[in-house]
Every structure is written in structure tokens, then in C-alpha cells.
């Protein structure tokens, strides 16, 4: 909207302009749970994750959590081509609200994991897209939290790095007390989650054991 519209009387967003993404969601989860969230594209999975992570505030109702939440939703946020790789690590941590975690050892572990030690002081723009993905993945996964919120995160890159990244992801998932995991890959959801939530058109259609929910999801997508 513009000030011009406001002044001439066409103000406020009309009800039909608002898109309600989630409706009547009631959800609770406790320590030890590994919760998969499945649903078709546009069902509201990522919006739900963002709400859990505190990125999007609910317009009605409330969303409460106890413990530190690590949202791994958008990787590579804040990277700046003009700065060095070293500064970009700090910048990415800043955008993830985790700057206090930075220390030389933390930086070294990330660069070592990405096999990019020799690029530490090089300009970020010299990195290939694969290297950028590696760095973004490592920064997002090198964190300890009470609640891990993962949105389709499994690293891209060459086969060896993907294996290493998957091992790191599994290690983090094993360590974290509570996991929310969005994925379209059935095998990953089965391997990681005992409980699953099926979302469709912004509503929780089913909440229960993973095998039953995935079966319902299959029915939904084949209809």
C-alpha cells in the first residue's frame, strides 16, 4: 500500500487480499520426540516451521517454546561477495542470531569440515556455488540447541561431501532433544521420525505414528 492510497481512502488490506496459510493448528511436543512434517507443496509446512522457530508470529493464538531453537530453514543467509570467507562466516552467524558462538576454533572446525582452509582469507566471490553450499551447510549444522528445526536440509555437493554432511546431520539429530523435520523424501522421514504430522491446505490432517501418516499422505497425493 502507499500513502497516496491511504490519503485518498483506499486503505487497509481487504480480507480477500490476506492469505491464511495455517488454520486451527494445535500442536505440542516434548523432549525425545522426532517429528516429521509432510504435505504437498504450499500446504504450510515451512510456515509452520517458521512459526515454531519464532520467525513468523501467529496472527491469532500463541506459540510457546522452552529451550534454544536452531532453525535451519534458509542456508547462506547474509553472505556478501565482497568480503572474505572468514568474515562471511561471522556474517552468516550474525544473520542466524548466533554471533556469540563464533571463536577461532569454531571457525577452524567449519573450514576444516568444508575442506576450505586455504580459502579462509580469500574473497567470497571466488568460491564456486558448491563451495558456498558446503559453507552454508556447515555453518547451519555446527550448532547445539534444544530444538532443531530442519527444512529439507541435506547438503548438496560431491558424493564424498554429501556422505560427510549426512553423517553430521544424523549426529546432530541424534544429539538434539527435540526435532521438527520437513521433507518430501519418505525414506528420510521414516529413518528419522517416530511421529509425523500431515498438513494439507494449512490444516493438520493427521498426527500420529510415521508409517500411518505416510500412508495417508500417499493416499492424498495419489487422489
Amino acid at each position: 500500500m502507499s500513502l497516496k492510497h491511504r490519503l485518498v481512502g483506499r486503505h487497509g488490506r481487504k480480507a480477500e487480499e490476506w492469505l491464511t496459510v495455517l488454520h486451527d493448528i494445535t500442536l505440542s511436543a516434548g523432549p525425545g520426540e522426532r517429528i516429521g512434517i509432510v504435505g504437498r507443496n504450499g500446504a504450510g509446512k515451512t510456515t509452520l516451521l517458521k512459526m515454531i522457530a519464532g520467525i513468523l508470529p501467529p496472527l491469532s493464538g500463541s506459540c510457546r517454546s522452552a529451550g534454544k531453537i536452531a532453525p535451519v530453514i534458509a542456508q547462506g543467509l547474509g553472505f556478501d561477495n565482497q568480503l572474505s570467507v572468514r568474515l562471511n562466516i561471522r556474517l552468516a552467524l550474525l544473520h542466524a542470531n548466533r554471533l556469540e558462538e563464533w571463536n577461532p576454533d569454531f571457525e577452524s572446525r567449519i573450514l576444516e569440515f568444508c575442506e576450505m582452509e586455504e580459502y579462509t582469507d580469500r574473497q567470497f566471490s571466488v568460491l564456486s556455488s558448491g563451495m558456498r553450499s558446503r559453507l552454508a551447510f556447515a555453518i547451519s549444522m555446527f550448532q547445539k540447541s534444544d530444538i532443531l528445526v530442519l527444512d529439507e536440509v541435506f547438503a548438496a555437493g560431491d558424493a564424498a561431501f554429501v556422505r560427510k554432511a549426512q553423517a553430521l546431520t544424523m549426529e546432530r539429530i541424534k544429539d538434539v532433544p527435540l526435532l521438527f523435520f520437513v521433507s518430501h523424501t519418505e525414506d528420510q522421514v521414516v529413518a528419522l521420525c517416530q511421529r509425523c504430522i500431515l498438513i494439507d491446505h494449512g490444516r493438520v490432517v493427521m498426527d500420529g505414528p510415521t508409517d500411518r501418516v505416510l500412508a495417508a499422505y500417499k493416499n492424498l497425493t495419489t487422489v
Binding site: 519464532g54 520467525i55 544473520h95
Partner: peptide, 9 residues
Amino acid sequence: VHELNASTV
């Protein structure tokens, strides 16, 4: 927009 939609900063 991108940052504000994906970060808790």
C-alpha cells in the same frame, strides 16, 4: 525481505 523471512534476528 529474504533475511526477515528466514531469520530470528
